[in-house]
């Protein structure tokens, strides 16, 4: 078997993408916001996918990007949205010594395993996959050749596992509701009229300058309507129109709204001219 010399191109790819993968991993662990963590992880996974392609495993690289980055991470984000974004960690560690011990042990582990791997593989001969793929045989064909012969049983068992997981997830996530337990529309409206606020809640952005979810509704006197705060999103202070505070400054609504009426009135609303 001939040793495959790793080319400069691959080295460049490694030294560019390796730090990116590391930064992604660290970012995932360190960012307080779970959505940010997910995005950092996507970053790392994409880098790894490129590594797979570089290391003569294009099929796995594709699967990594499509399945992992595409499907699994999206699943994570779905669940995050379902569970709520409010679950960002507090900075305070509740378990005494956990963080310090984890970091010390992590450094120790990384040092030991890294040193061990480096020691064990410094003279590792790289055979390369030229013998089993490339040329006539593609990477996919090579994998299929092994997967459907030697690992056939494992493959079949995996399919069973996937089915089981799918059914299990459905069972776990499913909520059984008996007929009749769900309130009817009549009951809902009746219950609503028994509260202090029969009308609908204000939508975000009502009377505000922007209509994004983050922009809360405004009350007539310009205060923020707390009813309209979106859950999980910090209300954004939206730049508002200047509001007249006295009769003189008030101007007509037409003036305020920039109407076509050229003659401003000093009566609020300009009604009783």
């Amino acid at each position: 078997m001939s040793d495959v010399v790793i080319g400069t191109g691959e080295a460049v790819v490694f030294w560019v993408l390796g730090p990116i993968a590391l930064v992604g991993a660290l970012g995932m662990v360190l960012s307080r916001n779970a959505v940010h963590s997910a995005l950092w992880l996507v970053n790392t996974m994409l880098a790894l996918g490129v590594f797979y392609v570089v290391q003569e495993a294009p099929f796995l690289g594709a699967v990594q990007i499509i399945v992992y980055t595409g499907a699994i991470m999206i699943l994570f984000l779905f669940v995050l949205m379902l569970v709520g974004r409010d679950s960002s960690d507090s900075v305070v560690e509740t378990l005494r010594g956990q963080r310090v011990a984890a970091i010390v042990l992590g450094l120790g582990f990384a040092g030991l395993v890294g040193a061990g791997v480096a020691r064990a593989t410094q003279d590792l001969a790289v055979t390369g996959l030229a013998g089993v793929q490339g040329g006539e045989t593609s990477n996919i064909e090579a994998i299929a050749g092994v997967l459907f012969t030697r690992y056939l049983l494992a493959f079949e068992v995996t399919s069973a596992l996937l089915i089981t997981a799918a059914v299990g997830a459905m069972v776990l996530a499913h909520i059984e509701r008996d007929a009749g337990t769900r309130p009817t529309q009549k009951e809902l409206s009746r219950a609503r009229f028994l509260t202090d606020r029969p009308q609908t809640l204000p939508g975000p952005g009502v009377y505000a300058r922007g209509n994004s979810v983050a922009a809360p509704a405004l009350l007539p006197d310009g205060r923020l309507a707390e009813d309209s705060f979106a859950t999980g999103i910090e209300p954004q202070e939206i730049e508002q129109m200047p509001r007249p505070t006295g009769r003189a400054e008030l101007g007509t609504p037409d003036a305020a709204l920039g109407t076509l009426d050229p003659a401003p009135s000093d009566i609020p609303g300009g009604r009783d001219r």
């Binding site: 662990v29 963080r99 011990a101 042990l105 992590g106 450094l107 990384a110």
Partner: peptide, 12 residues
Amino acid sequence: ILFTIGAVGVLV
């Protein structure tokens, strides 16, 4: 190193 970062992340 990635593995260790993941492990520490699980812990913290």
